[in-house]
């Protein structure tokens, strides 16, 4: 069982709260989303494992059970081509759960006309594999968002 932690502090809005249908309709996978506090910060690894992909507006960490979790920082942020996002670890690195992996600023993303809402997605997971999925309320960085059997 993997415990998936929130990469950012903020308010949980659920995937339906992501203003992008590909995420909102769970086409990328099931999970949840967090509307982050408007401040410069460092997003953390949602699980312990290996960094499969570091873009760095989005990253994937695969844990020892083979569960891959995608964290997507903001919506449409791929268009920023990395501007405003500083990777703190490299692709292929091992990270601990809660380790700081990307420096970014939710205010900057919002000031650029994009939503800073962060999607946290279980890749290749069926919806029933997730339990205790948070869908609302305030969340601290590094606290549990859902469990993945």
């Amino acid at each position: 069982m993997s415990r998936v932690l929130s990469p950012v502090a903020g308010r949980v809005v659920g995937l339906a709260g992501v203003p992008d249908p590909v995420f909102a309709q769970a086409l990328v996978g099931p999970g949840t989303a967090v509307d982050p506090v408007r401040a410069a910060g460092r997003a953390v690894a949602p699980v312990a494992g290996r960094v499969l992909r570091m873009q760095p507006h989005a990253y994937v960490v695969v844990d020892d059970e083979g569960h891959g979790v995608l964290v997507h920082l903001g919506v449409g942020t791929v268009e920023l081509e990395g501007h405003g996002f500083t990777p703190l670890v490299g692709q292929g690195d091992r990270v601990t759960a809660g380790q700081r992996v990307v420096a970014w600023d939710a205010r900057g993303v919002e000031a650029g006309g994009r939503s800073p809402v962060c999607a946290i997605v279980a890749l290749d997971a069926s919806r029933d594999a997730l339990s205790r999925v948070r869908a609302d309320g305030v969340v601290e960085q590094g606290t549990e968002l859902f469990r993945w059997e």
Binding site: V28, G29, L52, R53, V60, G68, L70, Q91, L123, D124
Partner: peptide
């Protein structure tokens, strides 16, 4: 058919 595998292609 695996999004993990496809993203992992990089």
């Amino acid at each position: 058919k695996s999004i993990l595998a496809v993203l992992g292609l990089d």
